[in-house]
Design a protein around this nucleic acid. Structure first.
Lengths: 352, 352
DNA sequence: CTGAAAGCGCTAACAA
DNA sequence: TTGTTAGCGCTTTCAG
């Protein structure tokens, strides 16, 4: 059993005294230095265990200039995607013996600034940030090694970043839609101000152009990245005249779920009347009825890689400064298979 | 604009030199001490801004013995309930100028121990923990001010805790079920080893006894606190002979969602054939079809109160050491209303 | 192989 | 009101 004085946490001096050596010897023994008699080392280790010694990382940080802590600033830890990212980051950091200070910015630039200041004062070794604004130039505000998460990072070539491969994701989605016979899906996208929207749209266009199809025919509706945003966008889509089955590719699972609600509101059935493809891979999609078919972002991997990138940054190893993680298809039940039910449709659509 | 030497972060000495005072004067000025000429203070503040000074919290922590950091050890930050708790804790901590080190234990005692050790080494001022095990006696392993979250805390009168008020929650659920004409709901509960299960069951019994009903008639199935656990439990429930409508009260939303799947698997309809009431209030329940009616735990509030309790603990203010947060009903669509459709059922059931 | 001493940045006690 | 000094716990020279 460990003796634990109620009053004070044992320091290395307590260990040294108990082992009958100087504190520098004790430190060396505990650090696993080579210039130590095996016998001395053993005595020190035993003494440390006996007094319940635990190295004070604050003190270590002061001396070494490395606190062993990393910061994470994301929009909202209660959002399932960001929670996944946080989990990945946390696991990777813990594996390296580092700890993670987590903050939510709520997409508020002031909150972000406050949190970054707190991180700097805490002397974290670096920070992983999903920057609130797409259009800041005051990069000074970071003032520490940083890795960005998300598409806004694109504009800052000096800062390394990790994100999902939107191009690949969009292709995956579009190919899957086509394989099911949906050649001209409507798009439900985020607000025009968001860089991610432009990236998504660009990928769609490229994909169409490569196949000699005209992206101009695609219906597009915008909305906030929320359930309500998706619901309204779908409402507008359903109000438009159309023939036959409607397929929708939403830029975000929440919007896709909202779209699904709008379909139900309109007395229609998904996937019979309307097919919906999402993007994110949040767990809620699994329990929706029908299950939401979606392109899943590897949130956990993104978090892990961000931490790895941050370590590279901290150690001045400027390796791969721009990482795009591949997404994968999660097939559930929200897409009708027109290629089986009505093969003539495909041919017809192809001719357009 | 701030001058920022690329090499070294400015210390209080840089500020002092620039202001032409000693470092203690600079410190006093920055701390807002009273024994300072307004003129001096202003000079110091200006100098601090000019060099871009930011107080080193590691150093402050060393001197003061207070690191300004709190630890949070929960089963899984990627679980929506715990993410809510984390969010509440984080917000409350930030409001007090503290930061939060977040760790996930995955219900693994070893991982928990490792994380607690890390927190102790980081010299956090205290920790909020959802203890993995219900049956530990080595309370020493904490070795710092602690607040527990969850029911296992009940066994440790010396440690303050915050949790949801299961008794109130169960009453709320049972009353609601009864108001809809479901007098003898089947129960889907967690593993027998969990203290929370016993608490839940006890509350059900009390409620029944108070109303002169016999709790012995209630069917009970156990399972893991997962979707699959709930699905299997519901499968077993459906295999039992029964007359008329089946109502189920699940101890956890994931299980409730799994139960809903099992109902679908059996070719039955919720809520027409089976009514399901959940417990937790996770967002997925909103998108399920039908929407899951559930008793929502105030995750965010729990996190906030835990931090407040931890501050009390740290400052040796042993106020309210046991806090139970009230839950609320989230009515969605998973409960049939038998009281309207078939009032004779209620009378019949009441006679049993 | 081991010990003594310096210093990371800060604040508080003591002096002036 | 301000300056000087000590020391929080640790690691790392530099001597021995």
């Amino acid at each position: 059993m460990v003796e634990r004085s109620r009053s004070r946490r044992p320091t290395i001096i307590d260990v040294a005294e108990r082992a009958g050596v100087s504190k520098s010897t004790a430190a060396r023994a505990l650090a696993g230095s080579s210039n130590i008699t095996d016998e001395t080392r053993e005595r020190v280790v035993k003494a440390a265990a006996a007094v319940g010694y635990e190295r004070n990382h604050l003190a270590v940080g002061m001396r070494s200039g490395r606190s062993g802590m990393l910061g994470l600033v994301i929009p909202d830890i209660a959002n399932p995607f960001w929670a996944e990212v946080a989990r990945g980051a946390q696991d990777r950091a813990a594996r390296a013996g580092a700890s993670l200070l987590v903050f939510s910015s709520d997409w508020d630039p002031e909150a972000e600034a406050t949190h970054l200041r707190t991180l700097r004062r805490a002397r974290v070794d670096g920070a992983i940030v999903n920057p609130v604004s797409d259009s800041f130039d005051d990069l000074d505000r970071f003032g520490m090694p940083c890795v960005f998460i998300g598409s806004s990072a694109e504009r800052y070539p000096d800062i390394s970043s990790v994100g999902s491969d939107i191009t690949q994701a969009v292709r995956l989605g579009l190919d899957h839609l086509m394989s099911k016979g949906h050649v001209a899906p409507a798009l439900i996208l985020g607000p025009k101000s968001r860089l991610a929207r432009a990236r998504f749209l660009r990928a769609v266009h490229e994909h169409f152009v490569e196949r000699d199809l005209d992206p101009g025919v695609l219906a597009v509706e915008d909305g906030e990245y929320t359930v309500e945003g998706g619901r309204e966008a779908m409402r507008r889509l359903l109000a438009q005249p159309r023939v036959g089955h409607l397929a929708v590719f939403a830029a975000n699972d929440m919007m896709a779920l909202g779209a699904m609600m709008a379909v139900r509101d309109a007395g229609l059935d998904c996937p019979r009347d309307v097919s919906i493809l999402g993007f994110d891979g949040i767990p809620s999609g699994e329990f929706a009825w029908p299950g939401l078919t979606t392109i899943a972002k590897p949130g956990r991997d993104i978090g892990e890689r961000a931490v790895e990138g941050l370590f590279d940054e901290i150690e001045h190893r400027p390796e791969h400064r721009r990482i795009y993680m591949p997404c994968r298809l999660l097939e559930r039940g929200s897409l009708a298979d027109l290629s089986v039910a009505a093969p003539q449709r495909i041919a017809g659509a192809g001719r357009n």
